[in-house]
Write a protein that binds this DNA or RNA. Structure first.
Lengths: 345, 345
DNA sequence: TTGTACGCGTTATCAA
DNA sequence: TTGATAACGCGTACAA
């Protein structure tokens, strides 16, 4: 593999000049430039960005840490990060944590050793020690899908509390009073926890007593939703509506409810969270709380590059969620009115 | 940021010794090792993998190029690649091409400049010039989701021809004779093209004349499927069954058909391709041709690391597809028999 | 078991 | 506008 030195020799110039044609061509006389370019061509020269990073102390690479790329919402945000990074000629190294804190820890360590210039982290725990260390050591990073108010941390997220509130409010306005929640395990991330708080508060504001039996914690998966809805339906007094921590759980819950013989949405209203791309293609089309995941990813990346450029004071950027009402929710008591003419399958 | 030299000074040893405790601790006396470890602790030493890569000429990084991380099947394969890489302590840089050849080209260039040790590429065109260049220059790489038979290229894929055949055969065995296909644009990747060939051949083998009107090419998206099914349904003699190039297209087609007033699967049978995680959660649950995307990703990564280790002769690894029959397909002529008791929505 | 000294490919500084 | 050369942090002969 030929180097800048080979090119220099071949073109009969110094390595400095070759470096210049690469990085600031306008500073070198056209004639010499052409000569160098030709020499590069001749020895099939390939630029070594790693060597450059070694001296400039910038790898032009960032690390992106997410729980699970299979979750459409993280795929979306990843796309946002990537497209922005690409525009700025930054490479992104991807790491999955499977929602495991230890994995988060080792990934961050490995990424730092790889000299990434910054980190975008969708963490399970924004208050964890890892994050604190990052702050202390002045590593540029931004949290994605996290909501820390104030403090020395930059973050892009949504108001999960409010999202949970709005979802529940929709159900209440439809006349439901037995409203369950299938939440992503609180131990695994605080997002589900905040959504639950919003749910709870909304209940309270509407004079509906909170019933702990109506909360099931599970993992963020199709199977999690499917299993959890069963538990809820086996209750002596089952819910007529359920708010799910994300769309995958909601989709699983819909499946489980159907398997239990219910007609949807007549027998059971379901609200999700995220608005994944297929949400409107499902049957019934999913009512959900939309997170602008792509834009959040883009924004996080933009913020990170800014911070890398010039460490400024932290920014917490809250993006708007939006309730998207589709077909999976309907007024309470629909079943009694409609009799047996519901959807059959 | 402290370096190996700082540690060496602090521990009163040479840099070589520090290097040894990092890379082959067993070759240094326990006493000195502890001393060095303590010194590292004291100056909060962080290993610089980039500097290492610079001298060893291995970055321990591979590049993964896919069309679109939002497609669940590519998310799955990416997960497979990543988990294997992670086990071997290899980082993966992700790049999306959006099915654009030019993007593929520039990504590969950037990745090579970043000194990745190898490349896993889900290409739009395995016969393109880019791939040829890679071969000529001896870059370790493997194609993922591509089927090149023979030749100097390592690849992991499925037999798309056969997959298309099997999907169509299923429809034929159900009594369908007007069988359409919504294919991913042939210009965009050859996978859809091969599936179409299988479809066509199956028709022929069963004495069903090929009708070009029953083929629509579109993009690999929900909207693509939705738009395309309309065209098919507006035909003077519309199909009673449709084979779709992937599950997203199938999902879109189901939506579009429903919007056109059809009941599924009675009025129209749909087969997809991929078996994305949510396929069995849809309504009707999707009949589809399963690709083991996760395993394919893992296998591709395994193969690549092997090649990087010792360039051996190319391997083409064909994985098995499997027809998964669920609810979106049913016997032809169901509509006439069932009358008006079908699903309503 | 440990130390010395050089080289990896590039950029940056300074001088010409 | 160009050239000479010192750095960057680490691995690795080779020597001790």
């Amino acid at each position: 593999m030929s180097t800048i030195l080979d090119v220099a020799r071949l073109a009969q110039v110094s390595t400095a000049t070759v470096s210049r044609v690469i990085n600031s061509p306008e500073t070198v006389r056209e004639e010499t430039r052409k000569k160098v370019l030709r020499a590069m061509e001749m020895c099939n020269y390939k630029y070594n960005a790693l060597a450059r990073g070694f001296v400039t102390k910038r790898s032009n690479t960032i690390g992106l840490i997410i729980p699970n790329i299979n979750n459409p919402v993280f795929a979306e945000s990843t796309m946002g990060v990537q497209e922005y990074a690409d525009e700025k000629n930054i490479k992104v190294i991807l790491g999955n944590t499977s929602y495991k804190y230890s994995q988060e820890e080792s990934l961050i360590k490995a990424l730092r050793e790889s000299q990434v210039d910054g980190l975008i982290i969708t963490t399970t725990n924004p208050k964890g020690e890892i994050i604190r260390t990052l702050v202390n050591e002045g590593v540029p990073f931004v949290l994605l899908f996290s909501t820390v108010k104030g403090g020395p941390i930059s973050a892009v997220g949504v108001d999960n509390y409010r999202g949970g509130y709005v979802a529940t409010e929709h159900l209440v306005s439809l006349g439901h009073r037995r409203i369950g929640m299938i939440a992503g395990s609180f131990a695994v991330t605080d997002r589900g926890y905040h959504r639950w708080h919003g749910y709870r508060r909304c209940l309270k504001d509407n004079g509906i007593p909170y019933d702990g039996d109506l909360l099931v914690q599970t993992e963020y998966s199709l199977a999690g939703g499917r299993d959890s809805i069963r538990k809820l339906l086996e209750l002596p007094s089952p819910p007529t509506a359920v708010f799910c921590s994300n769309d995958y759980i909601a989709l699983g819950a819909i499946k489980g409810a159907r398997e239990a013989g219910l007609s949807l949405p007549e027998d059971l209203s379901i609200v999700g969270f995220d608005d994944m791309p297929t949400a409107s293609y499902m049957v019934p089309a999913l009512t959900t709380v939309r997170q602008p995941a792509y834009d959040m990813g883009r924004r996080a990346c933009e913020l990170l590059l800014q911070i890398m450029e010039s460490p400024s004071r932290p920014v917490q950027h809250m993006m708007e969620t939006k309730l998207v009402v589709r077909e999976s929710t309907t007024a309470a008591g629909q079943k009694d009115r409609s009799g047996e003419t519901g959807e059959s399958l």
